[in-house]
Simulated assay, not measured.
Amino acid sequence: MSTTSILQASSPTPRLSGKVALVTGGASGIGESIVHLFHTHGAKICIVDVQDNLGKQVCESLDDEANEDVSRAVDFTVDRFGTLDIIVNNAGISGSPCADIRNAELSEFDKVFSINVKGVFHGMKHAARIMIPKKKGSIVSLCSVASVIGGIGPHAYTGSKYAVLGLTKNVAAELGKHGIRVNCVSPYGVATALSMAHLPEDERTEDALAGFRDFTGRVANLEGVELTTQDVANAVLFLASDDARYISGDNLMVDGGFTSANHSLKVFR
């Protein structure tokens, strides 16, 4: 008589139990998914976001509080929870589309770099002043497929994401001696408010989002799978957790092979 053993799936072990995290741009889109996933995995979280009302709504759902300035937010996090183990530099903008560099506005370029690059730099700097004395910590920044390939977005956006990748590698080189890991995540197109930011408010409809999903799906490499904010959050969780304890200076592509494949010669398509 044979015996059959049945193994029942158990709840996953929290991967951030006891960790304290700060997430910028955590009120909506990818940032909100990161916040909820981190919370599920046991982290204590503070959120930095210019969207006051949305930030408060997310915080209330997690019994947390919001703060707006990165430097003050780091101090607030440490005062509240005693430390800072993880910072996720997620806040960013795409900027206005411009197909002709002759028409590009320097003020727009400066705005995108100020948020996408200076914001990340400030996050890294202020996290480092807490993490260096502890000799540990994880810094994760949201980058983009535009960090490794041209023609994906406006010049300011693409330039800013290349800069974030450069900062990631350089800061990882400095902070490695302190046991601090510095990485970034580069997703393919995700249907969020950011992907609709170039449209007037009244045109950011469900139909517009559906059109974005249809377009990104048609030109994607990996077919039959739609990239979601949860997929990106899962990648951030991995890099933030001890599962990635020896990974630093990496740019984790969450793009279904988009930046690794060129189908213009139609060898496989």
Rank of each mutant, 00 (worst) to 15 (best):
M131R: 05
I34N: 02
A173Y: 09
E108Y: 01
I34S: 01
R218H: 09
E105H: 12
S160N: 04
D202G: 02
V88C: 14
I45F: 04
L194H: 07
K44Y: 09
V35M: 01
D214F: 15
H178S: 12
S96Q: 13
A156W: 02
Q57A: 05
M124A: 11
N67C: 13
A128Y: 09
H126G: 00
G224K: 00
P200W: 00
V78T: 10
K118P: 05
F113A: 14
G29D: 04
K135H: 06
S160Q: 14
V145L: 11
P133G: 14
L265E: 11
A99R: 00
T40S: 13
R204W: 00
V182R: 15
D202M: 05
R102A: 12
Y188E: 09
Y162C: 12
G92C: 04
G18I: 15
A173K: 04
L237G: 02
M124Q: 13
D49F: 09
K44W: 06
V112N: 13
L199C: 13
A220I: 12
K266L: 13
L62M: 08
S71Y: 11
T259V: 03
T158F: 03
A127R: 10
C184N: 12
T13R: 13
D75S: 06
G159V: 10
V190E: 04
T4S: 14
V225S: 02
A146K: 02
G29V: 07
L16R: 12
S96E: 14
L142F: 14
A156K: 10
Y162A: 10
V50S: 14
S107E: 15
A66I: 15
C143K: 09
R213M: 08
I6R: 12
D100V: 08
I139F: 00
V112P: 14
V232C: 03
E32Y: 09
V50F: 03
T40W: 00
G29S: 05
K111D: 00
D207T: 15
I30V: 08
D69V: 00
F238N: 05
D85F: 04
K118A: 10
D202C: 05
D202V: 11
F76C: 15
N116G: 14
R102Y: 07
I30C: 03
D85R: 13
L142G: 01
E174C: 03
A146R: 07
G150W: 07
R245D: 15
S147V: 05
T216C: 06
T192A: 02
V88F: 11
T4Y: 03
D79N: 01
A208M: 11
V148F: 10
L227K: 07
G211Y: 04
N89E: 02
M1T: 13
